[in-house]
Lab assay of single mutants.
Amino acid sequence: HYVEVNGKKIQATSAEEAEKIAKKFAKIYNATVLDLGNYYKVT
């Protein structure tokens, strides 16, 4: 599981952790979290 933010991949140990990381970055960048199955993308 990982999160992609601005083209950078951030490794996460679980889907739950990946979701938390994605939501945190989405809040910082006022962005949207896309759940793409095996990873989250912040756009």
Rank of each mutant, 00 (worst) to 15 (best):
E17T: 06
A15N: 09
N6V: 05
K9L: 13
T32C: 12
G7Y: 04
V5R: 00
G37Q: 05
A18T: 00
K8M: 13
L34A: 07
I28K: 13
T13G: 14
V42S: 02
K41I: 15
K20G: 07
T32P: 06
I28T: 07
Y40L: 10
E19D: 06
V42L: 07
E19V: 08
A18Y: 02
Q11H: 15
A18W: 01
E4D: 07
L36A: 05
A12S: 06
E16T: 09
K27R: 09
F25S: 02
L36Y: 14
E19G: 08
E4G: 00
T43H: 10
E19L: 15
T32G: 06
G7F: 04
E17P: 00
E4S: 05
E4R: 03
A22S: 03
T43Q: 11
H1Q: 05
K27C: 14
V42E: 03
V5L: 09
A26V: 07
I10N: 00
V3D: 00
L34V: 13
D35E: 09
A31K: 03
E17R: 07
E19S: 10
E17S: 07
T32S: 10
A12K: 01
K9D: 02
A18E: 00
K27A: 15
K20F: 10
N38W: 12
A12D: 01
Y2E: 01
E4W: 09
I10M: 06
E4P: 00
Y2N: 00
A22P: 00
K20Y: 11
I10C: 13
K23N: 12
I28V: 09
K8G: 06
D35N: 14
A18L: 02
V33S: 01
V5E: 00
L36G: 05
V33L: 07
I28F: 13
T43E: 12
I21Y: 05
E4M: 12
V3K: 02
N38R: 08
T43F: 12
K41M: 11
F25G: 01
G7N: 06
Y39T: 06
G37N: 05
H1P: 10
N30M: 07
I21S: 01
A22C: 04
T32F: 10
I21D: 00
Y39Q: 02
I10T: 01
Y2L: 04
G7W: 04
K20P: 00
E4H: 05
N6L: 14
Y40M: 05
T32Y: 10
E17H: 13
Y2V: 07
D35P: 07
K9Y: 11
D35Y: 15
H1G: 03
K27F: 13
G37A: 04
V5A: 04
H1A: 08
N6C: 15
Y39N: 06
E17C: 13
I10S: 02
A18C: 08
D35K: 15
Q11E: 11
K41V: 15
G7A: 04
K41W: 06
K27V: 12
A22F: 03
T43Y: 12
A12F: 10
N38P: 07
L36M: 15
K41Y: 09
A22Y: 03
V33K: 01
T43N: 09
E19C: 14
Q11N: 12
K8H: 14
A12V: 10
F25M: 09
V33W: 08
Q11A: 13
A22R: 00
E17G: 04
T43G: 08
A12E: 00
T43C: 12
A12P: 02
T32M: 10
I21N: 01
G37I: 05
K8S: 09
N30A: 08
A15G: 07
L34K: 08
Q11F: 15
H1W: 15
